[in-house]
């Protein structure tokens, strides 16, 4: 943990909760400040509060700079990076982009994004299975994304852990590919519950796999009734326009051109 963002392990960010005695000054008023003996401390604190506070901070930064932040989540191999490459290339000159890449190891994805001419930062989580708000905070401190830009945060490929960690994003996009099972939403309900858009990728492979688009939609809607679903193929380009339109509809700033 670091000290610069107020999230150091020695607790420089603390919450004061009514009914809880954590005020040093308060203790001086008592005669028995040396040995309090056994006592109960009412904590009532959300375990993810530290992450959520930092996520709110990121959110404030994004709002102030009118940055549209999107958290891209999926299992490994669904085509997140390819979808990003395609998007960054096709919409070049129309929107300003920045990308944060999250992977356990390597800068392979960041290198691919860099090749499109987009500003990119790679976060390597080491053994970590998800990005958290703290990592994103430091990434944006380093990369300083421009005002009115679109920031893609490509999370670690994992449909379980990233669901619990708010990064301060405005939209959470879950991507699945047709080479996965159409019961994926039911297997990983938390991710589909918290997402605001679902992209079904690799639809050009539909003739070769036993994947039912209707089934997957039905399953996703069981968890998140209003989840919009867009079907795309990064290979043929099918459906990409719909994704670009959705993306542009979320951008509040005027387009560059």
């Amino acid at each position: 943990m670091c000290a610069t963002c107020g999230c150091s392990a020695d607790g420089s960010v603390t919450m004061h909760i009514p009914g809880q005695e954590n005020n040093q000054d308060h203790n001086h008023g008592h005669d028995h400040s040396h040995s309090h003996g056994k006592r109960i401390v009412d904590v009532e604190q959300d375990i993810l509060q530290q992450n959520n506070l930092l996520a709110e901070r990121n959110k404030g930064y994004f709002d102030a700079k009118n940055i549209l932040a999107l958290n891209l989540v999926s299992s490994p191999g669904s085509g997140k990076t390819t979808l990003l490459e395609k998007t960054l290339t096709d919409l070049k000159g129309q929107l300003t982009f920045a990308v944060i890449e999250g992977d356990q190891q390597t800068t392979n994805d960041a290198d691919r994004i860099h090749a499109t001419g987009t500003k990119v930062t790679q976060i390597n989580t080491g053994k970590g299975c998800h990005l958290d708000a703290h990592m994103v905070l430091h990434a944006i401190q380093g990369m300083k994304p421009k005002n009115d830009s679109v920031l893609f945060i490509e999370n670690v490929g994992n449909l379980v852990c990233p669901a619990m960690f708010d990064l301060g994003e405005k939209e959470r996009v879950v991507i699945i590919s047709v080479t996965e099972g159409d019961d994926k939403p039911l297997k990983y309900p938390d991710m589909f519950f918290t997402s605001t858009l679902c992209i079904i990728n690799k639809i050009d492979l539909l003739p070769y796999v036993p994947f039912s688009i209707e089934k997957v939609k039905e399953n996703a809607k069981k968890i998140n009734r209003n989840l919009p679903i867009i079907e795309v193929s990064c290979t043929t380009g099918a459906g990409l326009q719909e994704w670009y339109d959705w993306l542009k509809s979320k951008v509040l700033a005027p387009e560059l051109v």
Partner: peptide, 16 residues
């Protein structure tokens, strides 16, 4: 890890 952090902070705050 978050639980440990919260508990440690609270313990220290309670002078325990």
């Amino acid at each position: 890890m978050s639980i440990i952090e919260i508990a440690t902070t609270q313990m220290e705050g309670a002078d325990a």
